[in-house]
Amino acid sequence: MNSIEVENLTKRFGRFTAVDGTSFSVKKGEIFGFLGPNGAGKSTTIRMLCGILRPTSGTAVVGGYRIDAQPEKIKKIIGYVSQKFTLYQDLTVEENIDFYGGIHGLSPSIKNERKKWVMKMAGLKGRENSLTKKLSGGWKQRLSLGCAILHQPDILFLDEPTASVDPVSRRDFWDLIYNLSEEGTTVFVTSHYMDEVERCHRIAIIFSGKIIALGSPRALKSEFTKKVDSTLEDVFISAIERERKNEK
């Protein structure tokens, strides 16, 4: 069963085509990585899938709802962590959790239970009343993730989630993602860190708004390189080279 089905999704800003007719699907419980350089169309794709940006043409079905027809329904079943750190810095840890819990309509008892869970998950116990701006990068990022999964969404969208996080926090973060995936949450994550996307079940490499390679890390390596111990970086480079050749 597929959580996300994308069909010919296109987004143009004026004459610039940010996403150029991409099609792919993501299975339920899968960790799907979107790999590409800056400006390749990763954030634009994620925003369209979250129902906050209208596609120019094409469509996608997220959790059974069409992004152009029922964005309100989609917003109830997804969690979204955008590229910038977007919790309220002038609110305390607890106030941020209460706010996002309230806006997702959690009942007080569920909210308290989930709050405890998030505080434990993010290692923030005892810091309930700290202002969010005083937290360090790793904590902030786990708190953003916590606020995005308070309402236990079916699908989680993460846009460059580990961009400003130290390696240890990054490892903890990925452990958490695996746990979520094992519990059945679909995770759609963008990144430009090669080593990081390696942990995904499947990867799409996006370049100039087009998907130029798609598959599991292992499959991609054998498809694009002949070396034994090749890395995703090799895959990435040869995929782009092949794309450039095709254009000519």
């Binding site: 925003r47 917003k75 109830k76 997804i78 955008s82 806006i103």
Partner: peptide, 14 residues
């Protein structure tokens, strides 16, 4: 500007 609106509109808030 700080990006919290993007987060806010991705929630079910009307």
């Amino acid at each position: 500007e700080i990006g919290t609106m993007e987060q806010l509109i991705a929630t079910p808030a009307r």
